[in-house]
Simulated assay, not measured.
Amino acid sequence: MNDEPVLLRADTPEGVTTLTLNRPQARNALSLDLMAALMDALTAIAEDDAVRVVVIAGAGPAFCAGHDLREMRLHHDPDFIRLTFETCAQLMQAVVALPQPVIARVHGVATAAGCQLVASSDLAVAADDSRFATPGVNIGLFCSTPMVALTRNVAPKHAMEMLLTGDLIPAAQAAEIGLVNRLVPFAELDSAVGALAAQLASKSSKVLRFGKHGFYRQLPMNLPDAYALAAEAMIENMTFDDAAEGITAFLDKRHPEWKDT
């Protein structure tokens, strides 16, 4: 038995919180306990003004190999399977709904629900030797839930190729199709993620939260409705103290001093 917690949390004074999936022996497969722990952590973070940016990482040799198939086979009854996939859907939506920006730190493999977690994150930085797949079709289980996040990140034909073939794609291809933002050598992964997280943490937290919420609200809208929403958002944003400070600092050629209000 492993007494280690399935999820680790580390916080920096600058407001960057790293949540590390900690089932390395199972390639961080998303067991029900791990998904519940991650949900609990995100719920707490959503109310924590001290947290400005969240990083999701994986311990051991992989980011996340998807759902825990051994657990699902052990508890092979309809209620457990339903609970597993409903919990996963809630988790992925919680990542999107989290007020703070979320960065996936990817190494090794990100497959099935692990690939879904990358696609659900706002940004992703990956080691250049990492690989990605939605391989359910290879075991007779189409990756229907990963499909939802995947098709909101990449073009339909790229998504269909991944879903229909189940092939592992290299990091370079994942970057080309828009699944990840940046690729770096594995040795530089922590510094690259840290630099990006620090850059985001240096912005107005109120503005980033406001902007993330607006981004996902307008995404499914038609063009006129999206522009109407965005115009109202700009008008509201102009009333923020940080907008006044930012504009003044820009005109005065100095760095802004954010109040997060």
Rank of each mutant, 00 (worst) to 15 (best):
A197I: 07
A195F: 07
A198L: 09
A201I: 05
L163V: 08
K157H: 13
M160H: 12
P146M: 04
D167G: 07
V193N: 01
F210Q: 09
A201F: 03
K157C: 08
F215P: 00
E188F: 09
A174V: 06
L163G: 01
L150N: 00
V184R: 02
F210G: 04
D167M: 11
G166Q: 07
S204F: 09
G178D: 10
K206W: 15
L196C: 01
L179C: 03
R209F: 07
L208K: 10
K212I: 03
H213D: 10
A192G: 04
A192C: 12
E161G: 12
A172G: 06
E161Q: 15
A171Y: 06
F186Q: 13
A195S: 15
M162R: 01
F210P: 00
L219S: 11
V148M: 13
A192S: 14
P156W: 05
R152C: 10
D167I: 04
R209G: 06
K157E: 14
H158P: 01
L183P: 02
L196P: 02
F186C: 08
L163P: 02
P185S: 05
M160K: 07
K212W: 08
A155M: 08
L183K: 01
M147D: 14
M160G: 08
T151S: 14
N181V: 07
A171V: 03
E176V: 05
